[in-house]
Design a binder for these strands. Structure first.
Lengths: 125, 125
DNA sequence: CCAAATGTACTGCCATATTGATACATTAGG
DNA sequence: CCTAATGTATCAATATGGCAGTACATTTGG
């Protein structure tokens, strides 16, 4: 499993880990049914504390991505589908935040939309 | 001056204050040359500590919005213009964040753009 | 039945951010 | 010159978040 943790990043390690695993599952890099490394194993590999990896797993389990059971390990369960209400709520939050930033910068709507489109269609850029 | 502070919000009071004053200046609600309430006065009105208001003023001064001098009070100085590099850098950050959220929700680009446009053109919504 | 590996839960520690309070410096005005 | 009002600077207390470590529960496999 390919994950990279930057200890100096603004987002804490457990969150980096959570995001990257979720992305891997969404993109098919980790198929449903795949068993993940054990908490302690992954912690060693990444130079993190076990509790940190445990937290990432725990949250991903709460979101529906994973299923972990003692003695058996942790396995990819599904690609969770949020309720429509939940999705629109989160989208609204994100859009509001973007709009607020754009407004504070005094940037025109056209430019803001073009920029958004670019980053939506070019994930790496 | 119309500002509202929500003590229970995720963003801390000093940041709420900073954002709202900056918005007022940008939108013309506070014209250049206008004198703001004194730190202590505004703190009393909002139920905040003087240091909290002082911080908001200080940061706004660092950004170029205000100019404060002891004995004279604090006055709206200008609507600061960021360098082009700074503006594009911040716009990029904001767009990346929005794109990341959209991607994590698995929402289509079209929908994301329409939503962004709505919130860009309807500040209140 | 037992040992090893696994996830879970809990607790204390540390770093950071925010606040609240106090003392200090500056200016205007009488 | 002096007082009052202002902004500035600094410090301690508090809350929060994240982390590391430890003990516990569960399952598998021999």
């Amino acid at each position: 499993m390919i994950v990279e943790i930057d200890p100096d990043a603004a987002t804490p390690p457990y969150e980096q880990l959570r995001t990257q695993i979720a992305a891997l599952i969404r993109t098919g890099g980790l198929a449903v049914g795949t068993r993940l490394p054990s908490i302690r194993q992954l912690a060693r590999d990444l130079g993190l504390a076990a509790g940190t990896v445990a937290r990432a797993y725990r949250e991903l389990e709460a979101e529906g991505y994973l299923r972990g059971r003692a003695g058996q390990g942790t396995v990819v369960r599904e690609i969770p589908r949020l309720s429509e209400a939940e999705r629109t709520a989160r989208l609204t939050d994100a859009a509001r935040a973007y709009a607020a930033a754009v407004r504070e910068l005094g940037i025109e709507v056209e430019v803001a939309l073009t920029t958004a489109q670019y980053h939506l269609t070019h994930p790496a850029g």
